[in-house]
Amino acid sequence: MKFTLSPEQRQFAASIGDLLSGSDVPGLARRWGAGQPDLATWRRLADLGVTGLAVPERWDGLAAHPVDLVVAFEELGRHAVPGPLVESVAAVPTLLVELGDDALAGRWLPALSAGTTVATLAAPPHLPYALDADLADPVLLVVDGTLSLARTTTALSSVDATRRLFAVDGAGVLASGPAVTAAAGRAFDAGTLACAAQLVGAGQALLERATDYAKQRSQFGRPIGAFQAVKHQLADVLVGLELARPLVYGAAVAVADRSATAGRDCSAAKVAAGRAAYQAARTALQVHGAVGYTQEYDLGLWLTKVRALLSAWGTATTHRARVAAALRDAATTAARR
């Protein structure tokens, strides 16, 4: 299996990165967290094709490879972009495509691909609340094999101020039965994978910020990055991210191949990416010291994002249990042969 990204994938990542670097994403995130979300940057990402990656061509999408999606989400995580990206770009398109209901797909996918609307999703127990539900159309709810349109009931707060969560109630059944369960399973895998990629990107950003700071900040007459204890901590973060990244790309390949292990692979990727990103967050905070958690300093945008994404789309415990169950099932099947 070849994990090297193609020149096109690297160029796509660079394009997203250039756009976001020039878009004052920290300012956007702060306004978003203060209850003033705006979709201007979303529309510009849509112009690059980000919102159409998981949408088939017949619904005006790009039908991109899941690895392309991972490339995009790593970059979105690196810039801590706010909004229901995982839901609108990965999970809901997957759900609507897998459901195979042309009326539902045709109703929303072209607008989602074009970036003129955003979608969000709640799917308890692992996804109990819907992100940015007041901005989204459709707001979808999947419970026990039933897909419904949902209406928002209560606004909730998250550890990450930019994650504007809403409790939702079903308000009109769209579909139900085993097809919904199967499609929701694929959508959960896609969301888990996108979330894992976002975590790797956020972890990478935290590492870069901490490394830059360690080179600038002097103490005891030298940059703090010259001290071995600081170097070791940052090196451990790098190793963690480097080991997580192939799991994320491997899971994307498994999803593309509709491999029997795709769910397990997405779970393993989320666990590894979450652990690496959280280590990056803790280390970045420690390297920065007190300035790291001041609200005016941008580092906090990544710190809280990583903490929130760690439990979004299933906690580490949930995903470990999924990996364990998959391995047990595989062992049982093998023993029966």
Binding site: E8, F12, S15, I16, D47, V50, L53, L62
Partner: peptide, 13 residues
Amino acid sequence: PRYPSFKGIMAAK
């Protein structure tokens, strides 16, 4: 200047 889009990048090949 615009940023190259996914479509543009693929078409360039």
